[in-house]
Design a protein around this nucleic acid. Sequence first.
DNA 1: AACGACGGATAAGCTCTGCTTATCTGCGGG
DNA 2: CCCGCAGATAAGCAGAGCTTATCCGTCGTT
Lengths: 315, 315
Amino acid sequence: MLDANRVRVLVEVAHAGSIAAAAERMSFTAPALSQQLAKLERELGCTLLERRQGGVRLTGAGRILLAYGERVMGDLRDAETAVRAAAGERPRRLSLGTFASAGKVLVPGALAAFARAHPDVRPALSDLEPPDGYGLVASGALDLLITHRYPGVQLPAAAGLRRERILVDPLMLVLPEGHPAARPGPVPLAEAAGDEWICGAPGVPNRVALETAAREAGVRVRVAYETRDYEVTLALIRAGVGVGLVPRTVLGACEPSGWSAHPVAAADPAAPPPAREVYLVHRRRPLAPVPEMASLLRLSAHRALDRGAGAAAAD
Amino acid sequence: MLDANRVRVLVEVAHAGSIAAAAERMSFTAPALSQQLAKLERELGCTLLERRQGGVRLTGAGRILLAYGERVMGDLRDAETAVRAAAGERPRRLSLGTFASAGKVLVPGALAAFARAHPDVRPALSDLEPPDGYGLVASGALDLLITHRYPGVQLPAAAGLRRERILVDPLMLVLPEGHPAARPGPVPLAEAAGDEWICGAPGVPNRVALETAAREAGVRVRVAYETRDYEVTLALIRAGVGVGLVPRTVLGACEPSGWSAHPVAAADPAAPPPAREVYLVHRRRPLAPVPEMASLLRLSAHRALDRGAGAAAAD
DNA sequence: AACGACGGATAAGCTCTGCTTATCTGCGGG
DNA sequence: CCCGCAGATAAGCAGAGCTTATCCGTCGTT
């Protein structure tokens, strides 16, 4: 049968993106992993990795084995924690993956409350932009993932995992002070047709969402500046560089001057307004503190939404 | 993290019932396994096995780890076959576990048809009486399990497995030739109140079923002879030693003389008559030939039921 | 009661897996 | 042009894990 330790090497290499990086994480040297992978490939009689510039990429067979391997690693971790839990031991670590703006808006409050309730559990945070992170959850390297979906972007498959939507975060049209379209109530995207946009690079979810919404509104998008960072986006709007779409929860956490935020009037009034959905992802039998952290994050999400609504109404 | 090879040792020991037997199966010596288990226990800080007379028994922690370990081993096997299947390789082995009477009645026909359709696949058979075998399926040591439930016996948990009932096999009251209760049509169990019974030892499913049915009919069971083997049961009935309950499908495969079989008239006419249920158990993503073997077994089951009905009606 | 069979634990020694270090190749950027 | 980075390969070494040997307790047999 396949050697589980070799499979683990493949999983780590896939997550790290290169043999060298995985070796670093596993406190081994690169040749050690290279040899184990070679044996795994010989054993299976097919190549699992394409050696290419700057690292490796999985072949089709490699991706199949990765999916199984992640499950196996996750189950091994679960096994250990289950046995230790039966012996009365409590987990002392909770690893959390989050995308950038949740890391600023949702996580700090939840983490503070969690730390008060569980001073003995050390939370570990890592930044992961969608669609990354699912494999880390499956393999148990991550206990809880906070991820999102923008309109027009497909949600990744989550085989064997639980995914829960904790927030529908409306995308607000943010205009500089004095913009002619600025007024209370929903604003059609078409009124920003003459403006330049500040958004992510092509392929970045918020860029896809903007292009999707613009297409539906029949507006052509001209991009003035590309950034993933909403604080930068707001600073640029404040400076009059252009306009942008920003999730409502982000607004409540930013300097509320120099711009005004408006609900987007959807082209089709029956359709829901464009919104970023925020999800939690974890394994089926999560560690004891995971559900608690999840409910703190839900709470944090609702508060952030309220704050954002306040920031938007302020204008 | 836990070493998967050590976990495998635990799984094998649990299935084999003793360290020595597991070592035999794994082509190792007993001390090798003993040492690995000791390391596993030290690593987890708790005992997994109780050393007791004639072998070992799992502790609570051991049972928890066993359940996870079986999943892990099953997934590792699945991983290998999935990768090989993607490379065009076809599985060449199919292991089948079956209880004794199915091995005689259901399996031979299905196996013959399967061998014609898949001359390249070598089937392996092993005898497993319920409730054994579920763990072997979970760990991938068994591809397909044929198991049963008698009335009054609880069906084992099958977490992560698929279980399908392929047959409801009515228990027939079998009487020696010339028995006063022998007549066409259903016979109440009470009419055998004066007879002695031939059935399994206490705890054996068919004994439990008999006692359950007798309790409902208000009949006290006196056991003349204990055997699990239905051919022996029928031979004893033929010899006038007593009466018995025998599944209908078994009757169609036995010498049809010297006894007569009758449906049992249930005490509560609304309740279904007592029957042995036959199930197939396999993993969620079975090997290619498993579903095919399953449908051959379903077919075989229906045929056996018809043959059994014939044998019963013959009297 | 004594003995042998069986199952397991422990000790000591050896083998081989799998790690490290060192060297080589190929590709890309300063 | 050359250095840096990622990976493959070769050679050597350490340790994990196996085997053999011995011991202990329990049971069934003589």
